[in-house]
Design a binder for these strands. Structure first.
Lengths: 343, 343
DNA sequence: CTGAAAGCGCTTACAG
DNA sequence: CTGAAAGCGCTTACAG
């Protein structure tokens, strides 16, 4: 392998001069700088990452801890991952992807061994076991997802409570008085998926405040269970005129369910989901939705993380808790309720 | 940070003895070994990855080069990524995820800087610009996807030609005599997506051999274009009785299209797709399909890569080219053609 | 069975 | 503006 010693020799200077010439960290005569640059170019020099990390205590790598559960809709996760990975690269960082089931073990490994300069956690739970570890790690951490205790880390998430209220108010304004809500599967809640009950709680409360009758259920994450549960819900509440979805799998399954029942949105049922526009386009979802902005959230998390890594003193600044205000993307799937019973 | 010097001091031995005690690379008295283990445990010692990499020339990280194009269906990629990442971890490796658009630049960076011990390439093109670079890299490489020139790397892929023949023969056996084939978007082919024409070529040839009339088109990757193109295809060939799909987005969109036309599979149209069972369950796809086995292919690639990394001499063994024989998962979407015209 | 020392390839005070 | 040297934290021949 070609080392900085090779460059130095080729350029006829010392290794330190070669290093400084390449980094620009001290003034070097134009001529020497050119000779070093030429040598590096010619020999195809790239600094050894391990050696540099050892010398500088910086790896230029951020850790991305994702987790995939059988009962969650994996494709939605990919967009967060890409938001993180693309932004990291833009800022000069590579991304160590960790999908290990035991997140605490993984986090301990990559922080203690100094494989990463910082960590982004996805799919954060209310009482996330990875958090105490992350707080005591020497590297800063950023979360996509709001935990019960957000101290010691930077947190970015959609404002799911505002999202719930927005869904209800939008339906209320159109004249709906009986709504259905399909949340994520109950297992997600039991694992501490706080965003599920944050949205659901807000929907329940806002429905009560607006005098709306609400039927809320946990959904499923897989066919055929998803479809069955949607059918069962529609069977059980034939007079409901609006459907709210905080469940990507249910959203993906809904078109078929509506077709099978001879229903159309918004003619027979108004529908609002909660997913990204990217998701909607990929999966052909014709429903208006609260934008979940996974790429933006991933990007914000990485930008803040890198700020903390690179800015002197930023390590001690107060931590950020930023909740994105929800936005409703209108795809024409809501309208005033029909007078008749679509049953 | 706690270093091996701290452990040595705590255990009252030299640093080299501490290192050997932890690695087990030479015999150490049971008593010393225990003292060192206790000290490491107590102080929470984890070797510094950079230092270890510098000393051993092994990073215990593999690079995963994925790429996402606007006109490809991203969720399918995720399964390959997880197959790679999970298997790597199982074998003691972490995964550096690279999603950079400029794959050659990325590959040069991570191989030259010795950030990784080996590289897995996804989404390999016929004349993939990353390949010459990978061949000349000091680290071994494994591909998921068959390029025009598979020399110098280990290659794993589905046997798309056999898959095409299997699709046609299955339909032929049932009595179908006019088939439709929807491939990936033309852009994918233009970029060198060889699997598209490998399957398509085999389908064309086998159809001819069996006396089947075939209408093959490139599909789309996004709504609403996907749906429109499926409708157009069905409009154009009302007498076709079978539909073959080598396009995940088209498969995901097909249920809605069939519903809209009042068609049912297999009553009015027999359908065979090409995607994974995981994909089918996630996206509620009721069609029989050739299993694309992304997790298995990712796993095979990593196992072989790690073999080459770790086994002495394996670096020089002849390279592997393994094409997975296609398997048809029957989900009941094919049957003998109806006598009438489903128009 | 154990220790002192060299070396991996960088960066960066220290000295001129 | 440049060079010689120390040091980052490991591993592993070399020596006993």
């Amino acid at each position: 392998m070609v080392t900085i010693g090779d460059i130095a020799r080729a350029a006829g200077v010392s290794r330190s001069t070669a290093s400084y010439a390449l980094s620009g960290k001290r003034s070097i005569s134009a001529e020497v700088r050119q000779r070093v640059a030429d040598a590096a170019q010619e020999l195809g020099y790239t600094p050894n990452a391990g050696a540099r990390a050892l010398a500088t205590s910086e790896t230029m790598v951020i850790g991305l801890l994702a987790r995939f559960h059988e009962d969650e809709f994996a494709p939605a996760m990919l967009q967060y991952m890409l938001g993180v990975s693309d932004t990291a690269r833009e800022l000069g960082y590579d991304t160590l992807l960790v999908t290990e089931a035991d997140g605490t073990r993984a986090l301990r490994r990559i922080t203690r061994s100094r494989m990463v300069d910082g960590v982004v956690l996805l799919n954060v739970a209310q009482d996330d076991a990875r958090l105490p570890l992350l707080r005591s790690a020497p590297q800063p951490g950023a979360l996509v997802g709001l935990p019960g205790d957000p101290s010691g880390v930077d947190v970015f998430d959609l404002d799911f409570e505002a999202a719930g209220r927005l869904m209800v108010d939008h339906m209320h304004r159109l004249g709906h008085r009986e709504l259905l809500l399909v949340s994520q599967p109950e297992n997600v809640v039991e694992r501490g998926g706080a965003y599920v009950w944050r949205l659901q709680g807000a929907v329940v409360q806002q429905a009560r405040a607006r005098g709306i009758e609400l039927h809320a259920v946990f959904g499923e994450s897989r066919q055929p269970a998803v479809g069955r549960s949607l059918h069962a819900l529609l069977d059980a509440h034939p007079t409901a005129t609006g459907l709210l979805l905080n469940n990507e799998a249910a959203a993906a399954a809904l078109p078929s369910v509506l077709h099978a029942r001879g229903l159309e949105a918004p003619r027979d049922l108004s529908v609002i989901g909660r997913y990204s526009d990217e998701f909607a386009r990929t999966f052909s979802l014709p429903f208006s939705s609260i934008e979940s902005a996974p790429d933006l959230l991933g990007e914000m998390a990485v930008r803040q993380l890198v700020r903390r890594i690179t800015t002197p003193g930023a390590r001690n600044e107060p931590h950020v808790l930023r909740l994105l205000q929800p936005e409703l993307i209108d795809r024409g799937s809501t309208a005033p309720p029909a007078s008749g019973n679509p049953g």
